[in-house]
């Protein structure tokens, strides 16, 4: 009897867990929309997961992070490319810390652009002021801000290596996004990839450990 009860309990827990997991990972659907908060509070943070690996649209952009500093005398340095060497080194040797560290720059920049799936879906259905309050409740803006902070710290960690640290007053970051050449034009030598620059504001330099 005890065995049966225990087995029954295990099976129930197992089924409950995987029903929750299945709904959690699926695209937004009516069940998920209704039970979203409940499901999220069960799944996060312990079972947090995301399997949109290279899908629906695989990431095909290159991200290059640039750093510029302002010295105490007001002069500005050139823009320093922090990414190209890292990428090249990762291509040369995979068994190195670079294989993961190469993700720091692009990941923090992507975090600054993160879109909230639920807010995105509600965009056309809900009036703007209500949308704003929902957005605020979901904390997406704070999450983006967190990404900007990491991006600055990431760039600042190179100051000691590249500049005379004592002179540095402020730093700013620029991100170049280079889109892949569309498949249909891959053999056209005149087509260049589309480039977009995002330049962030000047911020006071904060010391961060060097990588």
């Amino acid at each position: 009897m005890g065995k049966k009860l225990f087995a029954l309990f295990l099976i129930t827990a197992f089924c409950f867990h995987f029903i929750m997991t299945a709904i959690y990972v699926l695209p937004l659907n009516p069940v998920k929309a209704k039970g979203g908060i409940l499901i999220n509070s069960y799944m996060q943070p312990l079972f947090e997961q995301n399997w949109q690996l290279f899908a629906p649209d695989p990431l095909s952009n290159d991200f290059y992070i640039y750093l510029q500093v302002e010295n105490k005398d007001g002069s500005h340095s050139d823009w320093f490319d922090l990414s190209t060497t890292l990428y090249k080194e990762n291509q040369k040797n995979r068994i190195s810390p670079n294989n993961r560290m190469v993700r720091l720059g692009p990941s923090s920049f992507l975090q600054t652009l993160r879109v909230d799936e639920t807010v995105e879906k509600l965009k056309e259905k809900v009036p703007e002021d209500k949308l704003k309050s929902i957005e605020k409740k979901r904390g997406n803006e704070e999450f983006q801000q967190y990404g900007i902070d990491i991006l600055y710290r990431y760039a600042s960690s190179y100051v000691v290596k590249l500049f005379n640290e004592e002179d540095v007053e402020r730093v700013r970051v620029r991100v170049l996004v280079e889109e892949a050449i569309p498949f249909s034009k891959k053999r056209d030598p005149n087509v260049e990839s589309k480039k977009t620059y995002t330049t962030f504001d000047w911020e006071k330099y904060v010391k961060v450990l060097t990588p």
Partner: peptide
């Protein structure tokens, strides 16, 4: 779940 879900999102994508 991981493979099935990953495949489902892929099928949704244009490329």
């Amino acid at each position: 779940i991981m493979y099935l879900n990953s495949a489902l999102y892929k099928v949704m994508g244009e490329v």
